[in-house]
Simulated assay, not measured.
Amino acid sequence: MIRAYAAKQPRGRFELIEYDPGPLKSDDIEIAVESCGLCHSDLSLLDDEWGMSEYPLVPGHEVVGTVTGVGREVTHLKPGDKVGVGWFSRSCLVCDQCMDGDHNMCPDAEQIAVGRYGGFADKVRVQASWANRLPDELDTRSAGPLFCGGITVFNPLVQFDVKPTDRVGVIGIGGLGHMALQFLSAWGCEVTAFTSTGAKADEARSFGAHRVVDSRDKDALKAEKGRYDFILSTVAVPLDWQRYFAALAPRGRLHTVGAVSEPFQVEAFTLIGGQKSLSGTPLGSPATIRKMLDFCARHGIAPQIEVMKMSEIDAAFDRLREGKPRYRIVLENDFR
């Protein structure tokens, strides 16, 4: 039996449940959960913001733990291995996307907490190909958020060949943005943080930003015209996107990983005249996750976390809903 924390209705409080996962599939592994990061996507699932949640809902998709069981087809992992798992739990492995190495774009990909029970539990099961062994240099306590928040902002650097000589801006210095600053600084870019919170300016610099721009100051944004090769938006709210497109250099790209619910408003000639682009990416493949983990180990990159107990899950969600974390919450397993 697996014990987990489940909400039985949208915006509900969490209750302890037990469920039988059945026999272990031949290509699955079972993981004893040591900790699981709390992501804003978990809050969106709890509130059924995307219309895909099923109740009882067990969220949680930034899992770190120890392999306790492997299916008969699994050869690259063994009991005792320390692994991490993120948003995806399974892909078909045979479609064009999977065969090209883009498992995260598999049309039949399954999510760890959508249509099944997720990581706020004492154990979780996933397809072995979606579990990545942790480098010894990484702190297991803080590694969980790398498997969603981290790969979300790392994957675009790989997909769009961001260069060390590029000037890059990051919009929103929160759970995603503070990791993006660290990646880009270690990548070698000139990094600018766009933030509406003046108190975060010093923190942004500590994460690697060379410059900080007040995103509420229209004159300050206007002064950035034509500067950036790449702007990464991590916010989930609509902004005056035209100003950010104006800040792009010719052939520049505005890339979003924030789940903005409203359409982007941009004039066609803004794109045409400077050959500019708008794009988005869905997390990353297992291979890209491995690259990210190695990069973090090499450069000492880690999310800034607050640690709470899994039994404090309601208080943790309340804290996240109020926008208080600096910058990610990790819930440690305290099942008895």
Rank of each mutant, 00 (worst) to 15 (best):
I305K: 06
L184Y: 01
V74C: 04
A268Y: 15
V158Q: 12
E267H: 14
D166M: 14
D202R: 13
I272A: 12
D122W: 04
S41K: 12
I31K: 07
A204V: 07
V191Y: 06
G69N: 14
L38T: 06
Y19H: 01
A259Q: 11
A193Q: 03
G258V: 06
D314V: 01
D294Y: 06
L93G: 11
D100M: 14
I29V: 06
T270S: 11
K324N: 08
Y244V: 09
Y228M: 02
R11I: 07
V94Q: 15
R141S: 13
W187E: 04
A249L: 05
C39F: 09
W241N: 09
L176A: 03
M52N: 08
G101M: 06
R251P: 03
D100E: 15
H255V: 11
A4C: 01
S279W: 07
E262A: 09
Y228V: 00
V83A: 06
D314R: 00
D202E: 11
C36Y: 07
T281K: 04
D217L: 06
D214K: 11
S26Q: 13
T192G: 02
I313E: 00
V94D: 14
L93V: 09
F335S: 05
I173Y: 03
E18I: 00
V235N: 15
H255F: 10
S91V: 10
C296H: 12
I2H: 05
A249G: 05
A4S: 07
F183Y: 08
D214M: 04
E30L: 05
R11P: 09
V85D: 01
E322C: 13
S142N: 13
H103A: 09
R167Q: 13
